[in-house]
Amino acid sequence: MDHQIYILVVEDELEVMDALVNDLEQFEKFFPVESANSAEEARNVVNEIYNAGNEVGLILCDHVMPGQNGVDFLIELEKYLDQHSAKKVLVTGQAGLEDTIQAINNAHLDYYIAKPWTKELLEDVVIAQLTNFVMQRHYNPMQFMMILDSVRLSEYMRTNHITDH
């Protein structure tokens, strides 16, 4: 595959961002990780990624940040990324019910992880979401068998008559 699928981490507290990125280390060979400390920076990073001919497969986003909050950012992004179906996950301790409902309804939020997270949960969610992404974008699943959900990918290959060439 010629272009890269990125994982984007949006978090303003540097230590927390560090921890999240560290937990994603095993995915980096297949899905490079980028980070941003604010919604505004995230927007720029997303633009750079797409301008370089790559795409964003998964966004892990905090909610309470200076400037635009995570939910508003994801809702805005939804309009922009409409046809690109990047998976959106909120990682936060502080989104109230109303904000979360907004994110679900208007940003098609795919998952919500409450802080503090465990590495196991984070990995499971990332694998599941990126598996969904890869299937929805009709990428050849073979290249991701080692890192994503091989059971679902195999099933997908079977039902779509994809052969491993």
Binding site: L14, E15, D18, S35, N37
Partner: peptide, 9 residues
């Protein structure tokens, strides 16, 4: 000291 994401980039 931790670096900002733009600095890291």
């Amino acid at each position: 000291k931790p670096l900002s994401s733009s600095d890291i980039r």
